[in-house]
Amino acid sequence: MIKIKNLHKAFGANKVLTGINMHIEKGRSMVIIGGSGTGKSVLLKCILGLITPDSGTISVNGVDPNTGDRKVFLDQFGMLFQGGALFDSLPVWQNISFRLLQGKRRLSNTDAHALAVEKLRRVGLKAEVADLFPAELSGGMQKRVGLARAIAADPQIIFFDEPTAGLDPIMAGVINKLIREIVVEMGATAMTITHDMSTVREVADEVAMIHEGLVQWSGPVGDIDDSGDPYLDQFINARAEGPIEAVR
């Protein structure tokens, strides 16, 4: 379970998060929406401990990200980055099995390769892709390899940062479907950041909209069309007119 209480974060004079409260139950899929620059990625990085918040508390299964053993804490997570963030210098199979190739209980190269091939199959890619380098892959393939890496160590919590950004609608649909299937299959807690309403409808159990550093609206995905919230209405219907200023 992820609990966030009164989270604040500013970069100089720019107040990005101004009192976020949120709570995600174990095994649920939360999608966070909101305009560009509203602090969605900052929130996610605060949860991971990549950014230290100015004030407020975060608890992941009862543990604060910035205290205790970081490795044990991070071992719970898998993350799909917006641009894939695959390591250019390593072949695909080493990217996927990266976490499992480190540490005292590291897998042998043969086992790590086999596991990478299995995860590639799970995301709809052929075994041959395992020996390619990230630069040899298309954008959609890179996203799928990123997804395979995110699930390689069977994490309890998976974060997806704009999983369909830069993809054509068909590939976006494929990725959305995969995310939903994998999250259900693994029983993982998921948190997805997106602007893409097709992702929201495909992936979410719950939706939270962030605006000006606060949670503007949150609730079950089934309620978003009848929320009565003018901010959420403007966002999900992609209207230029409304309470959210188009020029920010």
Partner: peptide, 17 residues
């Protein structure tokens, strides 16, 4: 620098490294 810009350094951290 490229790894920083393309979030590969953040990815390393999330992979417990």
């Amino acid at each position: 620098g490229t790894m920083r810009v393309t979030e590969q350094i953040d990815a390393l951290t999330t992979l417990s490294t």
